[in-house]
Every structure is written in C-alpha cells, then in structure tokens.
Design a protein around this nucleic acid. Structure first.
Lengths: 329, 329
DNA sequence: GTGAAAGCGCTAACAG
DNA sequence: CTGTTAGCGCTTTCAC
C-alpha cells in the first residue's frame, strides 16, 4: 500500500488536516510543526496522490495540447514539436501537467476537447493551430473554457494568444533583399485569407513602398503551404515577370520555388523562406529565412494560460515573440 | 454545478451504484435499466468525472510519454512526432490518455518518472529512446513500473519493445545496391556500440557475403548521428578506398556524405540513408532510403503497454514493424 | 495554530 | 439483477 497523508500525520504526531495544510503551504501553521511534518514525509518517502487532490480541489493542474492529426504536416514542420517542447518545459516548471490529444476530424477535435473538459481532465487547452471559423474555438468560447492560441486570432482582445510580429519580420527580410541590390521582388504566400499571410504581405508591401519601389499585383501569389505550391507559383511568376528575388512565407514553399528556378535555369534568383526549418537549412546554399522561435511561442502560450488559470490580475493577454533573420547557416 | 452520477440515478429511478455499473458495462444488468440509465445520461448530458474514477479504481488510464529534451534532435528527426502520433491515436482509441514529460538531465528524467508514478498520474510509460545503461530503465525495472520501449533492448524477453528488423532492412538495401551494379560498397553507421548499428551492419555484411563480395574493414565507419559525422567519414573513406556506393544508417549522415562527395567532385557515387526524412526526400535526386514506419512503432508500443496494463494473457511482448525500401520519392 | 468531520464523484464488496 | 454502505486520499469549513 502506498503511504498516505495519514501515516505522515501519525509519524509527525499531528492530524491529517495539518499535513494537508503543510502540503498546500497554508500561512498560519507554525514553523515547528512544518518541520516535523516535512521530516516525516521525507522519512516515509511520501508523495501526495495528485488524483485525490484533483478530486478535492476540482482543479486538475493539467493543460491539454491539441495537435493536428496530419502526420506529414507534423513531420515536415518542426514547429509543432518545438511548440510542444516549450509548452511542456514551462508547464512542468510551474507544476502543471500536459495531456496530449488529437483527432481525425474537426468535429472529432471538438468532441475530444469536450470530453477532456467535461471529464475533469484538464483546466485549459493550448491550440497549436487556428483556422478561420474554427469550431474548436467556438466551442471553447461558448463553454467558457480557458484556452490560449498560437497565432493571431480574430479577436485579439478577448483571447489569449502569442505570435511573431509577422509584419516586421517580412519587412526586414524584404529590406534586406533590397539592400542586397534586388529591385524586382516577388511575394509567394499561403492562402490569402490567412491572417499570417496578410500580415507578412503587408510587411512586404510596406518595405517596397518605403524604398519607392513599384508594387505589382502580378508579383504576388497565394498558394498552398507546400513544395508543389511554391513550384507552380514560381513557374507562373516567371512566365510573365522579370524577377530578381522571391520572398516566400515558408521554407517549404521556398524549396519548391528553388526547384522551379533550377528547372528553368534561373538559379541566379534569390529565394527566401520562413521558419528556419532543417529542410531549408540543408539547401545549398542554405535558404535565407526567418527564425520564429517556436519554442518560445510554446513557452509563452503556456504562461498566458497558466497565469489565467491562477487568476493573476497582472497577467497580459498576449505576447509577441521576436523573430530573427537567418542569413547563413 | 456539474451533473453527477446521483442526478442520473434519480432521473432514471435507480441507485447510483446501478448507474456506475452501467458505466463500467457490468455483465448482469438488465437491458431495460441499461436503456433507462443511458437515456437519463443523454438527457442530462452527463460526463463521468474521470478523476473520481481514478481515485476509486486506483488506475489512471493514462500513459506517460518521455521525450528527449534536445529540441534540435526533435526538430530534425520526424521520428519522435511520428511515434507520438501513433501512440496518441492508439491510446485514445482504447480510452487511454497521454501525459507528456521531458527533463533536462538523465537524473531529471528519473525524477520526473518517479513523480508521475508515485503521484498516481500514470499507469505506465513509453520510452522513445533507450540508451545503454539507461538510469530510467533501471528505475522502471527496480520499481516494477510497466513500460515499453521503442528500439531493441538488451533484455528482449522481459521487457516490452517494438523495433524494425534492422538487419533485414539493411540487407535488402545492400542487395539492391549490388543488383544495380555496385561492387565496392561502404558502410557508415552510428556509434558501433548501439544495437541498431550492430544489426544494420550485420545486414550489410550478410548481403556482401551472400553475393560473394569482399568485406573490407576499411570500408566500415562508425560516426555520430549527424551531417558532420557523415561528411567526415566520407572524406576519410574516399582517401583510402575505391568506392561505388555508400550505405549509411541515417538520412542525416547520408546528407553529410553527399556534401562530401560534392566537394570531392565524386557525385557519381550512390548514397543511401535510413528513416525517410523530409531532409532526405528533398535532396536531388531524393535519397535512397528506408521507411521505418515510426507511426506504427508508436502504435504498437502503446498496444503492448496497454495490453499489459489490462493483463491480457495472450499479449505479446514485442513487435517487429515492417520497413520499406524507398527508391524514389 | 490545529483537530474533527464532511465531502469531492465514483467504484466495489456485501447483501438480498 | 439491484440497493446499501464503505471507502479511494486529499482539502476545507467549522470549531476550539
């Protein structure tokens, strides 16, 4: 049988409730008894039963983490495992546990979240990906479940979120390209409706504008987040335009673009990526790219959520994580 | 207030214990009452409090997953997130939850595991990486905690494990190289003490032997699992040997080898990898490699562990997951 | 400052 | 087949 609070109490010569108070660091308990109780715990190698505590306090000290179900996406994109590492490390440092979940469909995800909350398994959840009109988000809002998202949400005031300054990052990147002597700079982003695409594109446009460069709609493409997307868009682009450089919003897209350029024998054109992935890094030469510090994104998303769970008044409701231009490997 | 078993009981006109029995699918309960209870649950939108159940049954229905702490390793190697996906998906399908953990040091890992077990948070754990003389494994054995490992352990009989048939995979690969007309085939593996290296090397040697090809110690290198390792080993190799092809035990090593060959202007030499990573796949041409089906490794490790937790007599204690030669992308 | 007692929501003998 | 009862191990009023 496991050692419980009772044995500790007996050995320390106090009541179980006193032991509990020591455990929860109750203010008015004499140092002397505290010491006695601690010693008894040590001696018996006592570990509190977290499950019992959960039941009594109705707080699980556990946060859920919803991962996408698409293995290919997860495998190609170090983003997720990095976020996960950041979340886990921070949460653990604050005495929180991490429960993982995923589901095959959008409805499955809602169901999974519902189950975790309704079954008293988690206190809050971190969403690693937000889509437009995400039913998960709707569900969380409607039921008043605490959550934090990675990526800028529609409603920036009433939800907890972390993100990079995507405008700034792309602005810097394009500026750099201009400084290096490029004039005709194209832009290949993800779907145009995505907030992240919009922000990065705005940075691109602002950089051109501030340097007095012409902005041409034909030089802007929106594609799927994939190598194939980058490949096709680049071919299209070069058919009708004269291009010095291509700024993309993802290393995968950039790699596709590089392939297209190779096929077209236009390898002189500079391509930039985003996310500083191994794939980009293993290009020769390594891709110009942007480090988004996904571990920190995870770290701060966990911080936001945990602060909220602890009702910290001073808590912020968002963080912007710095990016860094990666010029060489 | 949340709806509990009591309200359900009242509405269905039975006692709480009957509701509980319905919940646990107790054999001798009449279909009629079952139906009544189910209906009441539906109507009240009842969700059992898993925490309370855990406390009562002393089973958490949760399995721990220990991930390495090295973000770079995790990011470059889709292996981990794939395993994680396989584990999560299978576990969820069996009504188990997944709790994630990691730690900075080896001792930290032991401590984390100890905490999770002693605090009644997990029933068992899956180890995604096993090292020689791993203190975590020692701890788990000594304390009789259920666990499964990914990778072949020293003691194949008394521990639950899943692995690929590494001998077979490398045997096939080298055979393929021979069929393609290569005669002088080198081998670059990870550290020579690792079981995985030994197994793959044995496959390599057997393939050469069965085809009557000469086996030369100089053609075999053991390096760190990294691009740099592959790069250096390849340079060494080519200094003293005449080589047609190089079989490596990892895509990263292979990529390093390719770089070395490029620098040496020997791009005619074929290089093969292992693990079918995006990085390998994005080489031009894509690396010859081996798909190890990491998702399945995760799947079966979870199955082994969960079967054991449920005391399935018929349960096996290991699985071999098929590999597949990847000749083109 | 500390103890007694009730209760978190569920399960599991023990009866009948 | 179903109800009664006694916990699982901890927290938390309410007394003193």
């Amino acid at each position: 049988m496991r050692v419980t609070i009772k044995e500790v109490a007996k050995l320390a010569g106090v009541s179980p409730s006193t032991v509990s108070r020591v455990l929860t660091d109750h203010p008015k308990i004499s140092q002397a008894t505290k010491d006695r109780v601690w010693k008894a715990m040590k001696k018996l190698d006592y570990h509190p039963n977290v499950t019992a505590r959960k039941l009594a306090t109705n707080a699980t000290k556990t946060i859920g983490l919803l991962l996408p179900n698409d293995v290919k996406l997860l495998a190609e994109n170090p983003f997720f495992i990095q976020v996960l590492t950041g979340v886990t490390t921070y949460a653990q440092s604050k005495g929180y546990y991490i429960m993982l979940t995923n589901a095959e469909t959008r409805e499955g995800e809602v169901e999974a979240l519902n189950h975790l909350f309704r079954s008293n398994l988690i206190d809050g959840v971190i969403m690693t990906v937000v889509r437009e009109e995400d039913p998960c988000i709707e569900f969380l809002r409607e039921n008043n479940h605490p959550y934090a998202v990675i990526g800028r949400p529609n409603d920036t005031d009433s939800t907890l979120w972390v993100d990079n300054d995507n405008f700034q990052a792309m602005y810097e990147m394009v500026n750099y390209l201009i400084k290096e002597g490029n004039q005709k700079i194209a832009f290949i982003g993800g779907s145009k409706e995505l907030t992240v695409t919009k922000n990065r594109r705005a940075g691109y446009e602002m950089a051109l504008k501030n340097r007095g460069l012409h902005l041409d709609e034909n030089m802007v493409k929106g594609v799927k987040f994939s190598e194939a997307g980058g490949y096709e868009a680049t071919k299209d682009l070069l058919e009708e335009n004269d291009v010095d450089a291509i700024a993309t919003t993802d290393d995968l897209i950039a790699v596709g673009a590089l392939k297209a350029l190779k096929d077209l024998n236009k390898e002189g054109i500079t391509v930039t990526g985003f996310n500083n992935t191994p794939i980009g890094n293993y290009q020769t030469p390594p891709l110009l790219t942007v480090e988004i510090n996904a571990v920190e994104l995870g770290h701060y998303s966990a911080k936001l959520l945990i602060d909220k769970l602890n009702n910290l008044e001073s808590a912020m409701n968002s963080y912007i994580v710095d990016t860094k231009l990666i010029k060489e490997s």
